[in-house]
Amino acid sequence: MSSSCGAPDQAAPITGAEGQTVLSGRVVSGEAPVGGAFVRLLDGNGDFTGEVVSSPNGEFRFYAAPGSWTVRALHRTGNGEASIQADGPGVHEVAVAVA
């Protein structure tokens, strides 16, 4: 763990997240993963909360809190978004298609 603000490796196994609410997923275009997309987490009011860059396999994750969230992805080939409801701690999966 560090006190820094750089996002950890988005493809690494999720560890040390016991009791945390993790939103984990993949950016895709059709069936193909989209790496290098800017993935933004918006809260229930649509306000920006965090942003990461998807891994080469399109993966991303956020350490959030229970609630309603929107995940929005921006890429030079297109944008897209998906909603996710996290009712409690654990890993919640979400896929975001860009077009």
Binding site: S3, A7, T49, G50, Y63, A64, A65
Partner: peptide, 12 residues
């Protein structure tokens, strides 16, 4: 509610 931005493990 959170101690750190949502893309990071919660520590600070």
């Amino acid at each position: 509610k959170l101690l750190a931005p949502a893309h990071l493990p919660q520590e600070s």
